[in-house]
């Protein structure tokens, strides 16, 4: 098992390397530099600025300089937010994004797999059809439609139920107060709940048809025990493989959600940086995102090994 985990970790390193390289050269291949849009600078000033950011050196040298700094956890200064380094900016944004993302992911996994198992156990009955119908809605209605709609309903129009005012704040972080989290997390989680429940239903239906489930039934085990001990562990495997893509999807969604709800996460820095050609910032955020996704893929791989004895030994 340790050997398996070690192999996976070693395998993740080249991936990260590829990402850094790809992102770095893509940024540099772009027409126009970060300082083009500002008013014309005297040549010597421009030269000084370029030297300060290592932009006067050959591209390959710049790349290795960047790699060297990266190895020390230094992502360089932000080109546009001149008083901050990229690391500082990410350090302020990441906790917000992480809290959002992880909350959404946890809710999606728990609720989605619960709904999926329910639907599978009631296959082709009304419970199944309604869960799958709603899931289809969740997949097809994009985040940037649900976000304004929910804002409209819960924020602007306001909802009162049994005399309680259910209105929610429609923007701002407010130090991460629960009320401010509800709408963004819901919007982020909805499509994932839908995908997870569909995945889970499919896997569970498949597993419930397996011969070993018949064996378990022939042993006189209760339906509950069959699901919990014999079926669930195999049915959860496709879900484990989906962890990485799920995080990637949630991070993508957070770009929208942070923008709509005005949350100070790294998604906003990314969009800002991209629009301003703030290369170091964009590069830093992409590396940060990629690391998160790779870490989760790694975790998923290891979890897969724990759950499936065949994979562990291979």
């Amino acid at each position: 098992m340790t050997g398996y985990a070690l192999r996976r970790i070693l395998g993740a390193i080249p991936t990260l390397f590829v990402i850094v390289t790809l992102a770095f050269f893509m940024m540099r291949a772009a027409p126009g530099g970060p300082f083009d849009s500002e008013r014309r600078l005297p040549p010597e000033v421009e030269r000084n600025i370029k030297a300060a950011y290592d932009l006067d050196k050959p591209l390959v040298q710049q790349y290795f300089l960047y790699l060297g700094k990266l190895a020390h956890g230094d992502l360089g200064p932000s080109y546009k937010n001149k008083d901050f380094t990229v690391v500082q900016l990410i350090a302020t944004g990441l906790p917000v994004s992480m809290r959002l993302g992880l909350s959404a992911m946890t809710i999606a996994l728990l609720l989605g797999s619960f709904l999926g198992v329910m639907a599978a156990l009631r296959q082709n009955q009304w419970q199944d059809y309604s869960v799958m119908g709603v899931a289809m809605l969740g997949i097809t209605i994009p985040t940037f439609v649900t976000a304004p709609l929910l804002t409209l309903v819960f924020g602007i129009y306001g909802v009162t139920l049994f005399g309680h005012d259910l209105s929610l704040p429609v923007g701002g972080w407010n130090g991460g107060a629960l009320a401010n989290m509800i709408l963004p997390v819901t919007v982020l989680a909805l499509p994932q709940i839908a995908i997870v429940s569909r995945l889970m239903r499919g896997a569970m239906v498949e597993v419930l048809r397996a011969n070993y489930i018949r064996t378990a039934r022939a042993k006189g085990l209760s339906a509950r025990r069959i699901v919990m001990r014999h079926a669930l562990r195999a049915a959860v495997l496709p879900l484990v493989s989906y962890l990485g893509p799920a995080l990637a999807a949630i991070l993508t969604g957070s770009l929208i959600v942070e923008q709509i709800f005005g949350l100070p996460g790294i998604g906003r820095y990314f969009i800002q940086g991209a629009l301003n050609r703030d290369y170091t910032l964009v590069l830093g955020v992409v590396i940060c995102y990629a690391t998160l996704v790779i870490l989760l893929n790694l975790l998923a791989d290891i979890l897969y090994g724990v759950l499936d004895p065949k994979v562990r030994q291979a």
């Binding site: 991936t15 772009a30 027409p31 990637a248 969009i271």
Partner: peptide
């Protein structure tokens, strides 16, 4: 597999911005 583990939409965004 490697490309799969990239958050690819971010690259598309960068591309769209740059070009």
């Amino acid at each position: 597999d490697i490309l799969y583990s990239l958050p690819f939409v971010f690259f598309v965004i960068i591309l769209m911005v740059l070009f």
